[in-house]
Design a binder for these strands. Sequence first.
DNA 1: CGGGTGGTTGAATGAAATCAACTATGGTGG
DNA 2: CCACCATAGTTGATTTCATTCAACCACCCG
Lengths: 254, 254
Amino acid sequence: MANAFVEKLKGYAPLSNEEVKLLEEVSRHGRRYASGQDMIREGDKPGVVFVVLEGWACRYKILPGGSRQIISFLMPGDFCDMHVAVLDEMDHSIATLTEATIVTIPRATIEHLTSVSPTLVKAFWWTQLVDEGVLRATIVSMGRRTSLERVAHLLCELSFRMRNIGIANEEHIEMPFSQIVLADAVGLTPVHVNRVVGKLRRAGALTVTPATLIVANLSRLAEIAGFDDNYLHRRISYAAGTASLKSIAERLTN
Amino acid sequence: MANAFVEKLKGYAPLSNEEVKLLEEVSRHGRRYASGQDMIREGDKPGVVFVVLEGWACRYKILPGGSRQIISFLMPGDFCDMHVAVLDEMDHSIATLTEATIVTIPRATIEHLTSVSPTLVKAFWWTQLVDEGVLRATIVSMGRRTSLERVAHLLCELSFRMRNIGIANEEHIEMPFSQIVLADAVGLTPVHVNRVVGKLRRAGALTVTPATLIVANLSRLAEIAGFDDNYLHRRISYAAGTASLKSIAERLTN
DNA sequence: CGGGTGGTTGAATGAAATCAACTATGGTGG
DNA sequence: CCACCATAGTTGATTTCATTCAACCACCCG
């Protein structure tokens, strides 16, 4: 079985066999978690980096009033910042959204990796850069898009990201979470999200089943959202072939 | 006059004299820009890193409908991601909000710096970590806070950041931008922001003058916002201690 | 002096939250 | 095996909040 962590990083930099072996080694011992488990909570002292190998997780924050805001989604291959281990205190929590297998890598191991391989450092930076782009796009959505666009935009983003890592294809894109979770992510109430989802369903963009949404027509969804995937900075189709491989190498070393 | 860039990084890692000298060298030739100038636009190929030495700037994005969302504020010492220079295309724009002096550092120089000093790499990472925390906090605000809390929260954040870099003290915190800019940052219309600002003014938290807001009572503002500055990750091993004190002393005497 | 920018206020409209009720489903314990 | 409960989804009526539209003021600057 492919290791999502290694695959993702391979997509961001041309890794040597040794580097691949190193990464596989440190991400071998994934542990299985139930859905809805907190991995770490706001206020905790972070000592490790979490890497999602399978399943979904999210970063979130609970406000004094009890409401929850989901800040970002983590899917296979995603990890929380490599240098979070250096912080004194978490400013948000991380929890599983589905059953998931997750690796925890101690800070010392990360430091070993980065000291051994500058290429890995750059790969980590790259992924972090993309993560920031996603956060910025989220801010734009929350600030200036209608609820319909906002929901559609998030689902588009997740669809593209799923396809990028090969856990979805054109015909079958399944989001394994409830409308309640979706509401916490887009900053709306569940009932209003339900109405919006209903619109998207009637537009033929979605189909709905309990606790999972299925994207039926991604291009229609993208049209509604005004979606532009430039911020995912995908290009680097490294996996596609050697030509791009060279250009990546160039880009990273120059 | 103190160099905001160097001061900021000194706050995040214990730098040697040589490292300080290096940084001063690369950030010496600041250029002066008028207010409201675009430094770089969405779609441009980024080739340099921008460092704000004096004045304010912001990242923003214009939506198809013409509305603007300000994603984050840049104040003296802030810079756009060190590795943005590796991207193919900007996914947002950067513009000045006031008259400002800004340095542009070419990518090669950055790579030189990071290859020469691991300490600098860590300092850069740290600042980026803080930036991400700010983005996450923004998402939480936009998703789950009322307009009053949202405005108050942003002004609190900016106040704390200004104090951290010594451009504001308890009694006098001046935000050099109009309510229109504020509206673009919090995702509301200018007229509604005006009503909210009115409330804060009547609560004694703010005073208002054309194109600048003045925080009159930060603790009242923080109370209204439910503000907790933990996400700014100020303390760190090092910054809380002698370095920042010393640098402030310097700034006051020069 | 006139025009631009920023600010302020009121009235109307529209969007989303709230409150409330009801369905469907799957799982659990008696 | 069924009764019950918890979770998720759905729909309608009402209220709250923010936008929109519109008018007007104050000020600085050319």
